[in-house]
Design a protein around this nucleic acid. Structure first.
Lengths: 295, 295
DNA sequence: CCATTGGCATACCGAAAACGTATGGGTTGG
DNA sequence: CCAACCCATACGTTTTCGGTATGCCAATGG
């Protein structure tokens, strides 16, 4: 059966007249009359009682009317919903983030997002360094807040900021008395190493920085998360070189100091699948840029 | 928008492929492809991501899919419901009845009806002699159980039985000692008169009976309902000549006796609008005939 | 009693939409 | 590099729809 027929049927039922309904539908009366009879033929029973003063629904017609009206409304709503999702007024945005950024960014990003896209269902998921790429590729998250960016041909990256590296150490460390730490003072001290996702688990994100300053730090431990790095620093297992934003999640007993003469930084990036064309991605990007710029 | 497009869309979404969907829809692939693109043009956004291994819904497509499926189901259900109503498998049957018949017929008729048409909503309404015709004409009731039948050109009547007249009197009346009362014994006694609906309120349903036996009964009171007639009989205001079935609703203190040599009876009839073609009417008629035959 | 009016149904024709066949283009896999 | 697969485009044919003209029936009014 055809939705047009149902639309015509509802119009005739409401106007209680073929002629009146035809006028409202901006069409001639005869073809409308034909369509109604075709619908009746399809049902196999009369839907109207033809009187001398118009048409009146039969019981069968009344049963059809309620459902046909609902079906029409649902179909129209479906089209509208699809448009709303395509335009970004409604839908779902699943945001992945890495824990380092959580404390610095999420508290200001989330309200900003809710204000920008009030009709959208937001959901947030923490990503680990080892699975973040897969979560973007399989669309578990629509966008990912990463540090550093994901490097993959199918994934689009937008750099929205950077965080300088800082030295993290126990409060009672002698270096903590300096307002900034010269690179040379790190030489020979044990390092708690975080791997750079692009360089394999055996490397460290700060290898280029150390090499450039000809500083050698023996690797005391390898950890996967900033959590772990700070735990080991607190246990006096070594020093960690972490992006500045990690400060906000640091426990008591750890202090951060800038590295003098080292302007190296780690990018903050928004990453998403190249073939995701949701307008929500651009909106998210705007919000994230705004929040990061105000850091 | 067209329901066919939505049907095609759902098929493609479920098959995740134009070709597969076309096969299931028993049509060629190209026209289906065209219809999908037309739907996308109507929405104004792509509904599928075209991959090399088939099609995959976009977020907008997912939003449309749920509503389109519901709309399709509702439309199909609407057609089916109309057919069910037209065939009498479902619907509503509003039964009007006159109180005289209630006690004798309804207790057996209602279960019989519920068994015959389990999907039908039944409702019952007592009719008064003065309004029963209007209730049938304005379709407040679909059928009416009447005694006697309604007489109106627009109303169809099926006689399903008859009830003999009996004499109703107080238990302590001298006539109550007879097992049947000769007509002559009524001569001169006061009558509680019920009007015959076809003969105006000033007449009585038993005028022809009395006249044929050359019996004259002064009219003590005129009442509208069998209730009232029996109340007045109980108050010793006079005698009433009532159809046999009225016995079942009679209060203590009233006895009924047959009238010797008087075979007059009042018809029990089912009445409905001539232009009501609901199959439920015929079903109702069958049930009512069966119940009345077993009286 | 006949004419007129109002409303739906039918007939026919032109226009639009959909379907099928043939074919192109891009990607995957051997 | 060729074959297979899948979707998109092009074009001719067929179906269906909408418009105009007209018929039929009942109710209304002079």
């Amino acid at each position: 059966m055809d939705l047009r027929r149902l639309r015509y049927f509802v119009a005739v039922a409401e106007a209680r007249s073929v002629g009146k309904a035809a006028e409202r539908l901006r069409m001639a009366q005869p073809p409308l009359s034909v369509q109604i009879r075709k619908l009746e033929a399809e049902v196999g029973a009369p839907l109207f009682r033809r009187g001398t003063r118009g048409m009146d629904l039969t019981e069968a017609g009344q049963a059809l009317l309620v459902r046909a009206s609902e079906a029409l409304a649902l179909a129209a709503d479906g089209i509208e919903a699809a448009r709303a999702v395509a335009s970004g007024r409604r839908g779902r945005l699943s945001v992945g983030y890495m824990f380092v950024l959580a404390n610095a960014i999420l508290p200001r990003l989330i309200p900003e997002l809710r204000r920008s896209v009030p009709g959208v269902d937001l959901d947030f998921a923490e990503l680990s360094a080892s699975t973040r790429e897969a979560r973007v590729l399989d669309r578990t998250v629509t966008v990912a807040l990463c540090m550093p960016a994901i490097n993959h041909p199918e994934i689009q990256v937008a750099r929205i900021g950077a965080q300088r590296f800082m030295l993290a150490m126990p409060t009672n460390s002698p270096l903590a008395r300096l307002s900034s730490v010269p690179m040379a003072r790190l030489h020979g001290r044990p390092l708690i190493a975080l791997p750079h996702p692009d360089h394999g688990p055996a490397s460290s994100a700060v290898v280029p920085l150390l090499r450039r300053h000809q500083v050698v730090m023996p690797i005391a431990s390898r950890v996967e998360t900033v959590h772990s790095a700070m735990s080991l620093v607190l246990a006096d297992e070594g020093l960690a070189i972490l992006p500045a934003c990690a400060q906000l999640g640091a426990p008591r007993g750890i202090v951060f100091r800038p590295l003098r003469d080292a302007t190296d930084s780690l990018d903050i990036a928004v990453c998403w699948r190249r073939d995701s064309h949701s307008p929500l991605i651009r909106t998210f990007l705007k919000c994230a840029e705004k929040v990061v710029a105000a850091l």
